[in-house]
Amino acid sequence: MNDEEKKHKRLIDDLKNLPKVEAPKNFETELLRKINSSEEVKKVSFWEKLLSPARLAPAALAIVSAVIIFFVVDINSEVMEDPLSIAPKLREDLAILKATQEIPVELKKQSVRQKEKVESKSEEMLSEKKDIAPPLSKDKGDDVRFESETEVDEQLVTDKLEVGRSDSDIYRSNDAKSLGGSVAPSTINIPSAEISKDNLNFLQRNLSSEEKVEVQQLKMKVQTEKNAKTERK
């Protein structure tokens, strides 16, 4: 017995001498009844408990409501549709104008090549005529050449217009599609007089010094021929 036990000796003795409480008389009978009643309770497995409609229905309801809240409310979403950042609907006429300006580079190149071809041909013809034609008929030949050049230029312009038109038609139809069909297709009513040479965006070619001299000579010739004509008249 240690010091603590000696100190509380009387208390410990009293606690030991407390009357022993006994179980009631019908303890076994009651116990048997409890055991039998507990056995009667059907043993339900964990998964059966979990998947029972009583538990499943509220869980499903909670999930559905959570999904609805997530997709409908979406409070934390920072990606909000800014009305200022939405591209406005294009006007029909502007869309067509834009389409006409965007002529593919390949087509431009083709037209330039054609022009060059025509120029070289006219030059050849001019040189041939120089050799063959007499000085008097030279004026006439030059006229023919000049006329043919202007004809060629006009032809190029009309070709270009047609090319542009067909392209613009394509783009217009594409734009109409991209605008969700809200823009009704329409024909282009641009008069040919409105289209100048500058607007057609021809290739600006830098001439070499020899070519410049040649062009200058041709211009001089044309000028002298014109002067001669006016004098004759």
């Binding site: 409480v21 179980a23 009631p24 303890f27 009651e30 116990l31 409890k34 055991i35 507990s38």
Partner: peptide, 18 residues
């Protein structure tokens, strides 16, 4: 509490049994 203690002891034996 005597009544309460009898129930608890019976429950104890039920647990031992099960």
């Amino acid at each position: 509490d005597y009544d309460g203690c009898a129930d608890i002891v019976q429950d104890t034996f039920v647990k031992v049994y099960r």
